[in-house]
């Protein structure tokens, strides 16, 4: 197992290197010149050129890349072109809201989706199944911002239960945190739930047809026990894979949700940086997102051991 973890961790290095090269090339081969934006309204051509030199934009591409990569090894993600602050600080400020939003969403989605999926599979073909599946398909047919606005309209404006926007750190005030996180997490949770519930149902249906499940039934074990102990446990491997891969989808939703609810997270940081061509920030955030994604999926692979004793690493 230890050897496997080490091997998998080592395998992320070339992937991250490729991501780094890819993102760097993408940005530096695009039109748009941050130097002109920085130079301002009255700048002469010479001033723009001076800024380009200062930023190192006149160096050959490979030199720029090596400088940047060398910084990465020192843990230096560069400096934002606009605010002049270190990218690592900008990211550090934004990690908590995004992380907590993602985590809360996953908790909501998983606790709702798995029981729903199991019930749908158990009652397959009945109206319960159809209702669950219709809600599930609807869940990812709605753009999250429409849902987000509807929840603000209902939960904040009409009922006044939740704040309209913003974020309170869990370390500052736990009730404040809960009040702020509820609506955004529900918004995203519905989409993510839909995905997991569908997968749970599909896998459960397959598993329920397996011999050992029939045997369990034949033995006269109670339905609940068969469903959870025998069927669900075996279905968890593909379900966790879905949860992991679905993270990519979730991150997309986070970007939009953060902007609806004005949550100062990484998603908004990225969108702002992209719209302003703040290269160092875009590069930094994409690297962080990719690394998280890769590591989380590794973590999920490792949890397979929990669900399926046959899997050993």
């Amino acid at each position: 197992m230890f050897a496997y973890v080490v091997r998998r961790l080592l395998a992320t290095i070339p992937i991250m290197a490729l991501v780094a090269v890819f993102v760097f090339m993408l940005l530096h081969m695009s039109p748009g010149d941050p130097a002109v934006v920085i130079a301002g309204d009255f700048a002469s051509v010479a001033q723009v050129e001076e800024i380009r030199t200062q930023l190192g934009l006149n160096d050959p591409l490979h030199v720029q890349f090596l400088n940047w990569a060398a910084g990465l090894f020192r843990g230096d993600l560069g400096t934002s072109i606009y605010s002049g602050l270190p990218v690592s600080r900008l990211i550090g400020q934004r990690i908590e809201p995004t992380f907590m939003l993602t985590l809360t969403t996953m908790i909501i989605a998983i606790t709702l989706a798995i029981p729903l999926g199991v019930i749908a599979a158990w009652k397959v073909g009945t109206w319960i199944d159809r209702a669950v599946m219709t809600v599930a398909v609807l869940g990812f047919s709605l753009p999250v911002f429409v849902l987000g606005y509807a929840l603000i309209l209902g939960g904040s404006v009409r009922l006044g239960w939740f704040p309209v926007q913003g974020y309170t750190s869990i370390f500052t005030s736990f009730p404040g945190f809960l009040r702020h996180i509820t609506l955004p997490a529900l918004t995203l949770g519905l989409v993510y739930m839909a995905l997991i519930a569908r997968m749970t149902r599909a896998t459960m249906l397959e598993v329920l047809n397996e011999d050992y499940v029939r045997t369990a039934y034949a033995k006269g074990l109670p339905t609940r026990k068969v469903l959870i102990k025998h069927a669900l446990k075996n279905a968890m491997v593909p379900i966790s894979t879905t949860i992991g891969l679905g993270l990519a989808l979730l991150i997309g939703g986070v970007v939009v949700t953060e902007s609806v609810f004005a949550i100062p997270g990484l998603g908004r940081l990225t969108v702002d940086a992209v719209l302003r061509t703040d290269y160092p920030v875009i590069q930094g955030v994409i690297l962080v997102f990719s690394l998280t994604y890769v590591l989380l999926n590794l973590l999920i692979d490792l949890t397979y051991v929990l669900f399926d004793p046959r899997i050993r690493y």
């Binding site: 006044g160 704040p163 309209v164 004005a262």
Partner: peptide, 9 residues
């Protein structure tokens, strides 16, 4: 729209 609601709230 969000900013307006924040002011109202």
């Amino acid at each position: 729209a969000t900013a307006t609601q924040a002011l109202l709230a």
